[in-house]
Amino acid sequence: MTQESQAPPEAGGPASPAAGPAAGGGAPPAGAGPPIPAAGAGAGSGAIEIRGASKSFPHPDGSEVPALSRVNLSVGAGEFITLIGPSGCGKSTLLRLIAGLERATSGSLFLDGRPIEGPGAERGLVFQNPYLFPWLNIHGNVAFGIKARRRWREEKGLVGQYLELVGLGRFGKVFPHHLSGGMAQRASLARALINRPLVLLLDEPLGALDAFTRMNMQDEILRIREEKRVTMIMVTHDVDEAIYLSDRIVVMTAGPGRVETVIPVPFARPRARNIPDFLRLRGKILEILNFAGRLEEPAYQI
């Protein structure tokens, strides 16, 4: 734990919102209430600080393709952030930077004040495809992190516990290809959570699920967050999902990827999906996304 005092969510609104062009139009409802009570003062770990992070990838023709341009973002400990935006806006890249799977071309990222230099067990990652190891049964998959960290003897009891947490207590002996999409995604959630990460990164984890499973899983994720008090950063395409789940929504735009604006979601949980405020916020986000998209469109209109 370090002294790096992040702006906790309680500090009133996004204390350190995205830099860059904070879209003039959509000023978020100011003075948003505390999104969630962070897990006690002492447990203030799990805060992410992103400073001027850029990422470009080499193009086959030798040039560099910018994927992410000078992103600034602070995520408080225990906060739930969603990254939303059109494809190509760099939201997955941003998540991979935080996970340490990619290195930023410039700028830097910190977890609780320590620079992020590679993947680590304190930052769990769940992909859209669960990527369960097909050669291990569910128990083996969930146990993977414990064994990889050489903590099997001390922590093997956790496996059953985390299987229960995601409602797969009876499925330990089953191999991944027998599971439905939703169950597989729960298993991969348990596999990431068993390391008790400070931050859980979710890359469209529910993108491949049908609408009902999806809503169930959203509640599941919220329940797990309540229980485990982990910072969550989630990439999604679904505006409703973003509003339903997150404390703040980071709206990103493409070409190159950057943060357009950060919108706090002031509603208390549990949230209803059909109240007017919800729908109004939804409309606003869509408008921002649309507006951002239209910037490039005139070439085709007339």
């Binding site: 996970a99 340490g100 799977l101 590679g118 993947p119 680590g120 067990a121 930052r123 769990g124 990652l125 992909f127 495809n129 990527y131 190891f133 097909p134 050669w135 291990l136 993977f144 992190g145 064994k147 990889a148 960290r149 991969s188 596999r191 990431a192 390391n195």
Partner: peptide, 28 residues
């Protein structure tokens, strides 16, 4: 698939562990 190595590295697996616990079983 590289994703398996990525997943295992975010789960705290080091290189040698990945070789024997991810690479070889997946190549079986």
């Amino acid at each position: 698939q590289n994703a398996y190595f990525e997943v295992s590295s975010t789960l705290g697996a080091r290189r040698v562990y990945q070789v024997f616990m991810v690479g070889i079983p997946a190549a079986m």
